[in-house]
Design a binder for these strands. Structure first.
Length: 852
RNA sequence: GCCCGGGUGGCGAAACUGGUAAACGCAUUGGACUUAAAAUCCAACGGCUAUAUGCCUUACGGGUUCGAAUCCCGUCCCGGGCACCA
């Protein structure tokens, strides 16, 4: 056996072995338990970044682990190929989005191969391929037929200079990122999909997602946001019209002192025609972006319409305001305002001198003042006429009934969740398969797929598809829809298509019923709501088309943390920062290793530490995975990402840490190389103390590692392997009993490491003649007899503080343990002069003496 | 602003989920080997002081408990998401 660890050679050989044996080709086999392991597919941005490496390493560890447990594992890979960056590259570099995307896929596929991930490449898909997107076009036409897809007005960011719709990401401080023009809100006709029809089911089914992290389930529940409230009608003074509003706090209705409508509300627009001040206010509200964060953080402003609403109970007139925080596309576009009991209403009332009328007080007589802010808790009604003295809960029903009897209101369930707007006014996406007829009607395209022309020039203004008459103009005056789908549309069902990737007669076939649901899904937390909710919704749409028979797409979910690294910069006179890659910075530390500062290697002058942040192009703190693989090999990179942090936490990059991972693999190699020959002739012999100690340590670590694999805390699996290797280093291969333990221990370590550092494990498994293929080996088991001890050590506490340690025979009874603890010299010192009240004994662990 | 997380040595982390805080690793320091360096091996390594069988220590302030990093209440800081980034 070679004495030097040469990762490049053994990794190439192992990968060739897997290729030649088609190890990762997955075939449906109803006789075996299946395991579908899926990592979120990448956007082909150019090169793999460390976030990808981490995500796919975790996925591959799980896939290989499940395989070693004997399951029929499917692990596919593909490309989320439509999206904005391809258009940006096209504008900047003049390359067609399709060419840019396909070239990136080639590069990244090569990088994935080099990392040794066990994918079934025969199922590869790219969402920009017509053979893929034709099926979502087909599904969309079905949704149109079912009334689940419809057209409605929606608000977009409009760049008045570039004459184009902007993504939220392209709006910076309220201005277009390229033109610098102030962005306007604009209402346009858009395609929407009725996800709200599934809101209750999507909410209820969250309870069944036992394999999902609790915080993701909570986020989805809150996002769907079911509420029970009251829909009620306010009259409008001097008009027959009514204004509908929804509230979850009908108990406060007697405290209403004004009503607020969205700036774009028809009522406001109508009044603005004769009110220049109001028109100016509406105009001001139109400026800026559409994101909720932006709307919620801006200063709350309002403007009187000069019109009163009629309170549905008291009949009193209350002023109507147009307000910038009321959203037209949200509920009815109007809200009732109760300054005494809602903080936002309170602030606006304070600002415009509107009265606050308190109608709720604390039930226990506690402080419920409204002098410095709204009293938002529930309580007991006061100054509420017939409802005085009722609790908030009682008032809810009483007021609802009162209004319902008079036809002015009804109880309603409301969801925060809005329908999914799927239209995008972009080129690089899947065409929405719809035709506009000359009579102004609409019909679904029957000849699918509608292919996206791939040879267009993109220049960042207007819509290229709209300009392309050969695409949009059809015979007999018909016009093709030029909007494309939101890219979430493609990523909402790709997991299912992998099962039937080559099926050209239907979206999915019977193979999908074998593999689905995905048993383990792995990806970033940033997808906790949108992608994961849309995919759940899509799954139910496919189920209702009879394509799949389970209710949820992902049985278990692992949300992995980000990869972060140090940032370094210099600032010029204008405060503009130039960021330097950590690799270019020489860092100095004090005696204890604490960071003092850094200088740029190139010029030796100081650079400023900018904290630890997510690896990104903008902060120039990324590490190129390919260079690392080149230098250390794929196994070291994989081992490092697994060992450095638990999967769900963020991972802080450290070059020295990578060095440490490489060191461990070399140590393992050296250990194996040093005893390879001795192992072949290892015979059983009587164990000495060193063997007993080593075996105890190995099986104790094994027990923990098996537990950690199950709970997916892979970093401590690696710790366990390190502990085992350290224990094995204490043995002497020259002694027969030691050699037998070395063989046993190495066999265990290699199998535990096979999912994490697969190439090295594969190679050593064969070198040590433990078998042909470590992936096919039975999973190791704990030998309980190796753990047995005749003497147990107890920690003794006095009043919760450690005061001594005692050794007790393993079969000692409670009295004997207690006696031994109380007899310890130091324990006696701390109990002297006190009465022992109680002694708590935790078996095999600890004794706590309570003495006063 | 709203929703969801997180905060433990110089650093990444661990603590079998309420029972010895700091396993495993990185960095640092000392030693061995070497002409030397690298690599490797061995050892020390939370803080304080009176160097001990001592005291303190898991962001901060309270609480529950025989016992709290872990559970509860409040505060501060950092991160993710907020519907057209993916």
């Amino acid at each position: 056996m070679q004495s030097e660890y040469d990762p490049a050679a053994i990794e190439t050989a192992a990968q060739q072995y897997w290729d030649a044996n088609r190890t990762f080709r997955a075939l449906e086999d109803p006789g075996r338990e299946k395991f579908y392991c899926l990592s979120m597919f990448p956007y082909p941005s150019g090169r793999l970044h460390m976030g990808h490496v981490r995500n796919y390493t975790i996925g591959d560890v799980i896939a290989r682990y499940q395989r070693m447990l004997g399951k029929n594992v499917l692990q596919p890979m593909g490309w989320d190929a439509f999206g904005l960056p391809a258009e940006n590259a096209a504008i900047k570099q003049g390359i067609p989005p399709s060419r840019w995307t396909r070239a990136n896929i080639e590069t990244m596929k090569g990088q994935l191969a080099r990392l040794g991930f066990g994918y079934d490449w025969s199922r590869e898909l790219a969402t920009c391929d017509p053979d893929y997107y034709r099926w979502e076009q087909w599904l969309f036409t079905r949704l149109m037929e079912k009334g689940l897809a419809y057209r409605a007005k929606a608000t977009v960011n409009w760049d008045p200079v570039d004459q184009t719709v902007l993504a939220n990401e392209q709006v910076i401080d309220g201005r277009g990122w390229r033109s610098g023009a102030i962005v306007e809100k604009r209402e346009i006709e858009q395609w929407s999909v009725r996800i709200t029809a599934y809101a209750q089911e999507l909410l209820d089914a969250i309870d069944s997602l036992a394999g999902w992290p609790e915080q993701v389930r909570t986020m989805q529940r809150n996002w769907i946001g079911r509420s029970e409230g009251l829909y009620m009608l306010f009259g409008i003074e001097g008009s027959d019209e009514v204004l509908g509003i929804y509230t979850t706090r009908p108990d406060t209705v007697m405290g209403v002192t004004y009503v607020a409508v969205a700036a774009e509300h028809p009522l406001a627009c109508a009044r603005a025609e004769h009110d220049p001040e109001l028109a100016a206010f509406i105009d001001e509200c139109r400026r800026g972006g559409t994101s909720e964060a932006e709307l919620e953080t801006m200063e709350k402003k309002g403007q009187r319409l000069g019109l009163n609403a009629i309170h549905p109970i008291t009949g009193e007139p209350v002023p109507i305001f147009a307000a910038n925080f009321v959203l037209m596309g949200y509920g009815t576009g109007a809200v009732m305002a109760v300054p005494a009991h809602d903080q936002r209403d309170w602030e606006l009332a304070q600002r415009y001198g509107i009265p606050k009328r308190q109608v709720i007080v604390a039930a226990d007589g506690g402080d419920s003042g409204i002098a410095t802010g709204a009293y938002v808790d529930k309580g007991v009604l006061v100054d509420s006429g017939p409802f005085d003295g009722l609790t908030s809960e009682q008032a809810f029903d009483a007021i609802a009934d009162w209004l319902a009897e008079r036809g002015r209101g009804e109880q309603r369930v409301n969801f925060r969740l809005r329908d999914w707007g799927v239209s995008r006014q972009r080129y690089w996406g899947c065409p929405i398969p719809v035709i506009h007829t000359p009579d102004g009607g609409i019909r679904p395209e029957s000849d699918l797929p509608v292919r996206l022309p791939e040879d267009l020039v993109v220049d960042g203004s207007g819509s290229p598809l709209k300009r392309m008459e050969t695409f949009s103009n059809l015979p007999e005056g018909e016009i093709r829809e030029t909007d494309t789908f939101d890219t979430f549309f493609e990523s909402s069902w790709y997991y299912a298509r992998y099962c039937s990737a080559d099926c050209d007669t239907a979206m999915l076939d019977e193979r999908a019923r074998y593999w689905l649901p995905v048993d383990q899904y792995i990806g970033g937390v940033e997808h906790a709501v949108l992608h994961l909710l849309y995919a759940r919704f899509f799954h139910k749409l496919m189920r209702d088309e009879g394509l799949v028979d389970c209710d949820e797409p992902f049985a278990r979910l692992l949300t992995q943390g980000m990869v972060v690294a140090e940032t370094w910069y210099r600032e010029d006179a204008e405060g503009v920062r130039t960021w330097y890659n950590p690799a270019e910075v020489e860092v100095s530390r004090d005696d204890k290793g604490k960071l003092l500062g850094g200088v740029l290697k190139a010029d030796g002058r100081a650079v400023i530490f900018g904290g630890v942040e997510k690896m990104s192009k903008s902060k120039n703190n990324g590490v190129d995975p390919e260079a690392l693989i080149e230098r250390y090999g794929a196994d070291t990179v994989r081992l490092y990402t697994i060992f450095t942090a638990p999967p769900e936490q963020s991972l802080e990059w450290s070059d020295e840490g990578v060095e440490g991972a490489a060191r461990f693999l070399r140590r393992l190699w050296t250990l194996a190389a040093g005893c390879a020959e001795a192992l072949q002739s290892a015979a059983t012999a009587d164990a000495d103390d060193a063997v007993t100690a080593a075996r105890r340590e190995i099986h104790r670590a094994l027990k923990k590692a098996l537990f950690d694999y199950e709970r997916q805390q892979f970093n401590t699996v690696v710790s366990g392997c390190m502990t085992m290797v350290n224990a094995l280093y204490k043995l002497d291969a020259g002694k027969p009993a030691h050699a037998a333990t070395l063989r046993e221990g190495l066999g265990i370590v290699l199998r535990l490491l096979a999912p994490i550092a697969p190439h090295l494990a594969h190679h050593l498994w064969r070198e040590l003649e433990l078998g042909d293929d470590v992936l096919a080996a039975p999973w190791p088991r704990v030998d309980e007899t190796a753990l047995a001890q005749d003497i147990v050590r107890y920690v003794v506490q006095v009043n919760g503080k450690v005061r001594g340690k005692v050794q007790v025979p393993a079969d000692a009874g409670r009295d004997a343990i207690e006696a031994a603890a109380l007899a310890d010299a130091n324990v006696r010192r701390f109990t002297a002069g006190k009465a022992v009240h109680k002694v708590i004994v935790v078996p095999n662990k600890l004794v706590n003496v309570v003495a006063k």
